[in-house]
Design a protein around this nucleic acid. Structure first.
Ligand SMILES: NC(=O)c1ccc[n+]([C@@H]2O[C@H](COP(=O)([O-])OP(=O)(O)OC[C@H]3O[C@@H](n4cnc5c(N)ncnc54)[C@H](O)[C@@H]3O)[C@@H](O)[C@H]2O)c1
Ligand SMILES: NC(=O)c1ccc[n+]([C@@H]2O[C@H](COP(=O)([O-])OP(=O)(O)OC[C@H]3O[C@@H](n4cnc5c(N)ncnc54)[C@H](O)[C@@H]3O)[C@@H](O)[C@H]2O)c1
Lengths: 204, 204
DNA sequence: ATTTTTTAGTGATTTTTTTCACTTATTATA
DNA sequence: TATAATAAGTGAAAAAAATCACTAAAAAAT
């Protein structure tokens, strides 16, 4: 199931691009190539999701995107916030792509008043003390954590208590969250390790 | 196999922390908890890798880390470079953790001479024209791509021709690489999509 | 000295995921 | 109009991954 979700998310992104460039139909083969899987897997995913295509044409880009959008609620705008406005946090804060793709970063938080005052961005920034209040009052569903490792769990706890449903964690700690909260870790060091390790395995 | 590699990388990171804090032995259960899997899976992974523990004690932290380090060459320093010194690239450039964990960022590249001149960092920065030369002469094995989407494939091609073995790609495009090159995409938008989609699926 | 508890090790089983093999529909072509 | 080609749909098979169920060893407790 996770694999399917992951593929669907990639497909959804690819469809957005294709839609923009005016493509009408797209085959399972092209989708497979675009996201790095096989046409069988793409068709099986769609089969399970009860999504139909057209023989000899493929899937209609617009309606396919629409259907995936509805099934996985990728069509709906989601509000997010970033906690920890250091080097990584500020880079993310100004990353316009998120907004285009349906994720609206509507607030940033930091513990340093200094930083908050100096920061240059169109997005509202607050002291971290306001986190719980802002998250719940503004209906923020996603929390992005870019604070130092030692503060990450505490921030996660506040976010969850305030009502976020998912956490994207950039700090290199494994956060404890209740199992109805979706957590995803972006650990760059592990990513580099994975690349290095995979290379070693592949070549022996 | 990929799943095993991923788990081993996480375990390796956790072991580094445990070693630091002076732990001697660690059980499959603790490891499982730390990386988010089951004790069975951890033991099975080790069983396959022919790694032995001690009954009623667990695995010896130091020698386990050592063994994984050797098997997956995670003990060896790897040189890496960052191409694209914008908001994300500069954040990564100064991220000290990489060095601690055996990844030595030894060069940064950008197409803007202006940027290169203004940038403040201890790491050597070069115009992108020097990429191929620096990569091959300094034995850089890993390339980190943080250029805009439209330049990403071209940079990947140069990196590969110059001899990198793996690419960590932060741009939101699927790079084409020969299959002996390990590529890993860090697509933050997809990560947010995944969280949102998983949440929807979980709660219906 | 004996029993209990804990934890690894692993073959067998189960579950999940992927791939295959084949059918069907539709369009293009001869 | 007949034939060829293309691409979806899907049950079956295969492969991969995870879990279970058990044994064995060692330490701790009685
Ligand atoms: N910089 C990178 O390239 C990079 C790469 C991988 C992972 N990370 C991880 O991302 C996180 C942030 O990294 P960074 O380099 O941006 O660090 P940073 O030190 O530049 O920024 C951290 C920010 O968090 C703020 N902060 C600290 N405690 C806080 C709290 N309790 N509540 C709110 N804000 C708080 C600090 O004031 C600072 O602005 C770290 O966990 C780091 O390990 C960073
Ligand atoms: N900023 C973020 O938070 C964020 C988040 C997710 C993904 N990304 C992706 O990471 C990449 C970089 O994002 P960013 O926000 O840092 O962008 P940015 O515009 O701040 O930086 C891009 C840098 O690449 C340089 N560059 C452009 N073409 C180049 C080339 N051919 N060779 C070498 N350097 C070149 C530019 O001079 C600039 O310094 C983009 O692909 C973006 O989609 C960024």
């Amino acid at each position: 199931m996770n694999n399917t979700i992951e593929r669907i998310c990639k497909i959804y992104g690819y469809l957005a691009v294709q839609e923009q460039s005016g493509a009408d139909f797209i085959s399972s083969k092209e989708l497979a190539e675009a996201i790095g899987t096989t046409e069988y897997t793409v068709r099986k995913d769609f089969s399970v999701l009860d999504i139909k295509g057209y023989t000899r044409k493929g899937y209609e880009v617009k309606s396919l995107k629409e259907k995936l959008g509805v099934k996985f609620r990728l069509n709906k705008e989601r509000r997010a916030c970033i906690v920890g406005l250091g080097r990584l946090g500020t880079a993310l804060l100004d990353y316009e792509h998120f907004q285009n793709d349906g994720f609206e970063i509507i607030a940033g938080f930091d513990s340093s008043i200094n930083k908050i005052e100096r920061i240059q961005t169109k997005i509202d920034v607050f002291p971290v003390g306001a986190l719980a209040e802002v998250v719940s009052s503004r209906g923020i569903e996603l929390g992005i954590i870019t604070v130092p490792a030692k503060a990450a769990q505490e921030i996660a706890d506040v976010l969850i208590r305030a009502g976020v449903k998912g956490i994207l964690n950039f700090s290199p700690v494994k956060l404890n969250v209740p199992k109805d909260i979706v957590r995803l870790d972006m650990d760059f060091t592990n990513a580099l390790r994975f690349i290095a390790a995979k290379f070693v395995i592949q070549n022996k």
